[in-house]
């Protein structure tokens, strides 16, 4: 990919629905803003918008992405400033409109307008491999694939990686979300080893299952703002890795406090 100047456009995708794309987008947005970066998070899930809810900005929406594309407002007017971070903005998806209202070239032109003023543009991709997926990856400089340690989710992630490669956007980096250390230890869940063995792409983070995530999403205060949340720490570490910092991957902890030794082998590099 030819690198454009300005912001890096990072698309969060998965194939399978419900694995944590929106949660990841919101938390990376917050975590990057905490690191002092200028960030726009963009909801490309037309018709099923919810990034605004998870970010606690639902009640501030006046215009959305489709309004911008169809010329009903200026790009600036659709950008909602975060309550706590003045350099973090959300561009919401349209609630009801037709998915075909947006084309891949619209995404490229919008991100190109934003690039000069920001460090990161994070795009929340809809589930599936249709038009919405193509829109969401059109402008991407980098792609992060979210998956769960579950056979069906890994299968879909693999398929997405194949499509990314076919579109010269691959292979992307992997986020393994909702990891339960104790289940891996008992052999009931795929381990990070098992997953990377099949997908053979670089792992940029492992996010544990964390009971703080759902209430955080409901209240619009993502876990990246919670100092004690394990998932929050994992998302903040991913943000630091995105910025080029060498942060070792945390070993997966089981509930009894033990470690999975095999992980240190897997991540032996750092």
């Amino acid at each position: 990919m030819t690198a454009k100047a300005g912001a890096r456009v990072v698309t969060i995708t998965s194939g399978k629905g419900g694995v944590g794309k929106t949660t990841t987008t919101a938390n990376l947005g917050i975590a990057l803003a905490r690191l002092g970066k200028k960030v726009v998070v963009m909801d490309a899930d037309i018709g099923l918008r919810n990034l605004d809810i998870v970010m606690g900005l639902e009640n501030r929406i006046v215009y959305d992405l489709v309004d911008v594309i169809e010329g009903r407002c200026q790009l600036r007017q659709a950008m909602i400033k975060h309550k706590q971070f003045p350099e973090l903005y959300l561009i919401p998806a349209a609630q009801t409109r037709d998915k075909t209202a947006i084309s891949p070239s619209d995404m490229v032109s919008i991100t190109d307008k934003l690039r000069p003023e920001f460090d990161f543009i994070i795009i929340d991709c809809p589930a599936g491999i249709e038009r919405g997926f193509r829109n969401a990856i059109a402008a991407a400089d980098e792609v992060l694939i979210v998956t769960n340690p579950e056979v069906s989710a890994v299968r879909d992630a693999d398929r997405i990686i194949g499509l990314l490669e076919a579109n010269n956007k691959g292979p992307g980096k992997l986020i393994l979300n909702r990891m339960k250390g104790d289940m891996v230890k008992k052999g009931e869940m795929l381990s990070p080893d098992d997953v990377t063995d099949i997908l053979s792409i670089k792992l940029i983070g492992i996010v544990p299952e964390d009971e703080n995530v759902i209430p955080a999403s409901n209240s619009g205060v993502p876990v990246a703002l919670n100092e004690n949340s394990k998932a929050g720490i994992a998302f903040r570490n991913i943000a630091r890795r995105l910025c080029g910092e060498e942060v070792p991957l945390m070993p997966v902890q089981d509930t009894s406090g033990g470690f999975l030794q095999r992980l240190s082998r897997l991540f032996g590099g750092n």
């Binding site: 693999d158 398929r159 990686i161 194949g162």
Partner: peptide
């Protein structure tokens, strides 16, 4: 000459050689 990922199929009236993995799916 690459890994065949999930969802990919190859048909051939002859032989098939894959230099890479053939993933589940």
């Amino acid at each position: 000459r690459r890994t065949l990922r999930s969802g990919r199929t190859v048909h051939s009236t002859g032989h098939v050689i894959v230099y890479g993995d053939v993933n589940p799916g």
